[in-house]
Design a binder for these strands. Structure first.
Length: 419
RNA sequence: CGGGGUGUGGCGCAGUUGGUAGCGCGCCGCGUUUGGGACGCGGAGGUCGUCCGUUCAAGUCGGAUCACCCCGACCA
């Protein structure tokens, strides 16, 4: 894409009223637009990042047999009455609305009940199970106080998967398979090294732990105790000797860290399936309960967490896998040969399928282009100038490095091929 | 929801004892510039969050209200 075709601009000033680094940088660089407290629109650059994250999540969910669907934002009251969760006294962060005739509706904050309800026509035999369905979409939660930019919004993007198993053993298998997929996802997103599977409270209806995926960050709202060697952690909320024994963790191996919850998985047992009358008939004709699991990943929150983790004084630093563009191509000056060379390189990169942003602005000095490339966090910078042209080369610099390299086009292509 | 703070051109801000709004960035035009956010000259752009009140006169004083931010509580 050409920079002159992108309607967003960058800003030198930090927006007043945003304290969170993720929101400050994402707004300055033109990724998001604040609509109101806790509600942000995704502009072209931001949407690209969001879609890249979604795609990685989608691929890994598909790889373990998840079937993608899309549930509705508007939800009928009756399915929620079956689990007594429509009541504000039970779930206090609902957004609710009404039909013209006065019928109360919920605005989706999670989807256990509707998903179970939707499966009723299709699941009745042991032959129909096991089964996992997931969706990636908006969630609405009426938080008393929005804060931390896109880390805690009232409207946010989440992937939620629900698994349905015939018995506990089968559930456990699905659960661990999903846990393994989560590890892959965080690795691919570039935060695997500092993201820990963290034991947490399983909820009031189960004796089991749930698992949170916590990525280390100073701005995190959670405190966890990490065993780096075992790559496991325990949330402060359940940090007791009894639980440490259950988890096989030793106090002296644990380090206290602040972290952001970027996903969680937890066992639901048969709470929702039973409540909504979703059962199956086994081989012997007996009616049986279905064991469920629920698996969330905060897609938009991850975007914010990654900004928080990797940003430096110059701006955002995206991991290559989710960057809106892999390369920022900059021509220095408007010398005819430089421009011609740049256009050819731009076309060649596009032909190779490389997502490239060419800063083709003619009235902007190089320093500003460099500063913008840094602020936007594009992982690779390629500069064409009279100087590089004299060597029939380009200058390459990684966002995370101070070192610049002079490369021929072939060398550049080789370098980005392994990106 | 409790406590604290802030609302003034697109963005960031200043505005004295009340006297009818200014700066920087950005934007438009012309010219000089072109390897780390250039410079000169000339422009455009604001019913000062909203409403009510006090006053000859309100960005400025009083009240209400809305919004935003911070701390706390809350966060399937």
């Amino acid at each position: 894409m050409k920079r002159t075709e992108l309607f967003t601009k960058t800003s030198k000033t930090t927006p007043a009223g945003e304290v969170a680094k993720n929101a400050q940088l994402l707004i300055r660089a033109g990724y998001i637009h604040k609509e109101m407290a806790g509600v942000y629109a995704y502009l072209p650059l931001g949407l690209r990042v969001l879609e890249n994250i979604k795609q990685i999540v989608r691929e890994e969910m598909n790889a373990i047999g998840g079937q993608e669907l899309s549930m509705t934002v508007l939800q009928p009251r009756d399915v929620w009455e079956k689990t007594n969760r429509f009541d504000d006294a039970v779930v206090d962060n609902w957004f609710k609305t009404k039909l013209k005739d006065g019928t109360e509706l919920g605005v989706g904050l999670t989807h256990e009940e509707p998903v179970v309800d939707a499966l009723i026509p299709y699941v009745s035999s042991y032959k129909d199970l096991p089964l996992s369905v997931y969706q990636i979409g908006p969630k609405f939660r009426n938080e008393l106080r929005a804060k931390s930019g896109i880390l805690r919004g009232r409207e946010f993007v989440m992937k939620d998967m629900y698994s349905f198993a015939r018995n506990q053993a089968e559930h456990d298998e699905l659960y661990e398979k999903t846990a393994a997929a989560y590890t892959k996802i965080y690795d691919r997103l570039g935060i695997g090294a500092e993201t820990y599977r963290t034991a947490a409270d399983g909820g009031y209806f189960t004796e089991r732990f749930s698992d949170e995926y916590q990525t280390l960050s100073d701005v995190g709202e959670d405190t966890i105790y990490v065993d780096k060697a075992k790559k496991l952690a325990i949330n402060k909320e359940i940090y007791t000797d009894e639980n440490l024994v259950k988890l096989g963790l030793n106090r002296q191996d644990l380090v206290e860290e602040k972290s952001v919850e970027v996903g969680n998985i937890f066992p639901l047992e048969s709470k929702y399936s039973d409540a909504l009358d979703l059962y199956y008939t086994d081989e012997r004709g007996q009616r049986q309960s279905i064991i469920m699991g629920c698996y969330g990943i905060g897609v938009s929150r991850i975007m914010g967490a990654i900004v928080e983790k990797f940003a430096d004084e110059q701006g955002i630093v995206w991991p290559v896998a989710i960057a809106p563009f892999k390369i920022c191509l900059i021509n220095v000056g408007t010398d005819e040969n430089v421009v011609k060379f740049t256009i050819n390189l731009y076309k060649k990169l596009q032909e190779k399928g490389v997502e490239v942003l060419w800063d083709d602005r003619v009235d902007v000095r190089p320093g500003e282009k460099f500063a913008d490339a840094d602020l936007m966090g594009i992982p690779h910078r390629v500069v064409v100038s009279a100087k590089t042209l004299a060597q029939n080369s380009v200058e390459y610099k990684a966002r995370t490095s101070e070192e610049t390299l002079i490369l021929t086009i072939d060398e550049l292509l080789k370098k980005i091929a392994c990106i």
